[in-house]
């Protein structure tokens, strides 16, 4: 029979020392909405589970007009999506976080957990990529920062060493006419994992796009930043032609597989559809700011 030890540290230092002691055998538990399922299925079998929910830094949710949003890795999605600041400045992130599950799941699940689970199809990762979020990581040797698009390395794997944990995301403050949008495609209206997810964030100066970032989910072994697609829009008016060109570049960035959730062909098609739709929506939101 499999033995399991559970600890709920109340400080970052405590968490790091428990994690260091556990080594490869340790696993952080945020909402548990992925980990517990994986343990039941025998996919992950940690001997030491460390509850992230009682560590203050991991519960942060604060906005500063200069430094942006500090979002603790274990903060529950239901609180994030109900936050007026998030709704106002990062509507795409709110959209992504709201898609993680039912109300019950949203009360447990966290954005940090969603990202750390390392799924290529995670909903919040492309939204965070679009926003240019930075992951703040802590370990025995101090802290370090990694761009969110570099955080996941392969399905289920991240840059985290066994003795490190994700503390928070730092999300830049929107300056001027900036907004974002996240959309995913699922066959039903609920209860599905993204066949494709696209997050787009655009900044405008009048009619001209000054920056654009497009994050893609479920179209490669890890969530992607479609850099060329975003960059192609800089200096342009976001008309249909520019958006179509960006959508095609996003399709080129994607390298999807065929599986039970969709064929490669269908996924590539959807990258185009959702890139167009999210860019148009993000631009409309940016103009309205």
């Amino acid at each position: 029979m499999h033995e399991l030890n559970y600890e709920a540290p109340t400080s970052l230092d405590q968490a790091i020392s428990v994690l260091a002691a556990a080594g490869e055998n340790g696993r952080m538990l945020a909402g548990g909405t992925d980990l517990i399922i994986q343990m039941r299925a025998g996919v992950r079998q940690p001997g030491q589970v460390i509850d992230a929910k009682k560590i203050p830094e991991l519960q942060a949710l604060s906005f500063d007009a200069q430094s942006g949003l500090q979002l603790g890795a274990a903060r529950a999605c239901c609180e994030i999506i109900a936050d007026a600041t998030v709704q106002q400045h990062y509507p795409g992130l709110a959209e992504a976080a709201a898609l993680i599950g039912s109300d019950q799941i949203l009360a447990r699940a966290s954005v940090g957990g969603n990202v750390c689970n390392g799924s290529p199809a995670a909903d919040t990762t492309p939204a965070l990529i679009a926003l240019g979020a930075v992951c703040q990581i802590a370990g025995p040797n101090g802290t370090r920062e990694v761009a969110v698009e570099d955080f996941v390395t392969a399905p289920g794997q991240t840059v985290l060493a066994p003795n490190e944990l994700l503390v928070a995301f730092q999300i830049p403050a929107p300056q001027g006419q900036v907004s974002d949008c996240y959309q995913r495609f699922i066959p039903r209206n609920e209860m599905d994992i993204a066949v494709v997810g696209v997050g787009s964030c655009v900044a405008l100066d009048g009619d001209t796009c000054t920056t654009a970032r497009i994050g893609l989910g479920a179209v490669a072994a890890r969530p992607l930043l479609a850099k060329e697609a975003g960059d192609s829009l800089v200096g342009k008016t976001l008309d249909d032609a520019a958006i179509e060109a960006a959508a095609q570049l996003a399709q080129q960035a994607a390298s999807p597989i065929s599986d039970m959730r969709g064929t490669a062909e269908f996924r590539t098609h959807l990258v185009g559809v959702l890139t167009r739709r999210t860019l148009k929506e993000a631009a409309a939101r940016a103009r309205a700011r």
């Binding site: 609920e190 209860m191 599905d192 959730r261």
Partner: peptide, 8 residues
């Protein structure tokens, strides 16, 4: 039931 998709 995640991927055997009955209507919700």
């Amino acid at each position: 039931f995640l991927d055997y998709r009955m209507p919700t």
